[in-house]
Design a protein around this nucleic acid. Structure first.
Lengths: 138, 138
DNA sequence: AAATAGTTTATAATGATTCTAAAGTAATAG
DNA sequence: CTATTACTTTAGAATCATTATAAACTATTT
């Protein structure tokens, strides 16, 4: 199956209509080997580079990120920044976060062991375990 | 030494002038047993309750949080929320973060063991290790 | 081919935070 | 002490990220 069909399939099986805009964004985000970290504004800039024939509105960028997140194709990352970062790697893993440059870098799940997890508060369940190693220039 | 003097001392030893506003906020934040989590807007509401005689401007609330953070008296917490959370517990520790209500709860440092930390990227050093357990209604 | 349900868009609105520059206050120098 | 300086507070404007609105558009279903 070719890339275009794969993307269309991925969207349809998540109950997302395969519109031109979603296909373009999905192709950009999910057709890659390495994990990709971004904010909405960054994705907007990249997708709407001046040369790109048809622009996608910023609202659609936000809507699409949200739809992909709800569908489980993107994961939101915890930072102390006042904008949201997303990760194309939706499996459990960890991050370095440079507090000076706001840059993120993945850490393989198995490179850190988290032992002895406490119970979640009553009536709640643990959804995810994330380790963030904040780093700065040494 | 009484509370007022302690607070004044704490400010002065951090090279922060002990102004009326900073003393009031410091007294509220640091004179407590249990850790306290808050956002700038929340702190503003509490400090400027209608009955409080002298109001402190929102800009000063922001400035003061920032000054306290830089002085190491407050720690910024990692969440996926678009507002900043601060913690009066500046020692290394972990959190439950309820992604539905945005509520934070401390986890004692020793209740979780993080083993086998990877090296920081070249030229960088690890500043902090934070584990966030995202939780939701079960 | 028409009806409908979902999507995109430009723009307005909101919410959190930072900026500005004038007035005020603490620290320091004379 | 008083004057000077440096830092701080303030109200309000400005900015930045994000969400809401509602009209035009398009994929899907009938």
């Amino acid at each position: 199956m070719n890339l275009k069909n794969k993307i269309t399939n991925k969207l349809q099986s998540s109950k997302l209509r395969p519109t031109k805009q979603r296909k373009k964004i999905a192709e950009f985000l999910f057709n890659r080997e390495k994990t990709f970290h971004f904010t909405a504004e960054e994705l907007n800039k990249i997708i709407n580079k001046k040369d790109s024939s048809e622009k996608i509105s910023l609202a659609t960028i936000y809507n699409t990120i949200d739809a992909f997140k709800k569908a489980g194709h993107l994961k939101e990352i915890l930072t102390n920044n006042n904008k949201s970062f997303y990760d194309t790697n939706v499996s459990s893993h960890h991050h370095f976060f440079d507090i000076e440059t706001n840059e993120l870098e993945d850490i393989n799940y198995n490179d850190i062991k988290v032992v002895n997890l406490p119970h979640a508060p009553k009536g709640k369940k643990i959804q995810d375990v994330e380790v963030t190693l904040t780093v700065k220039k040494s």
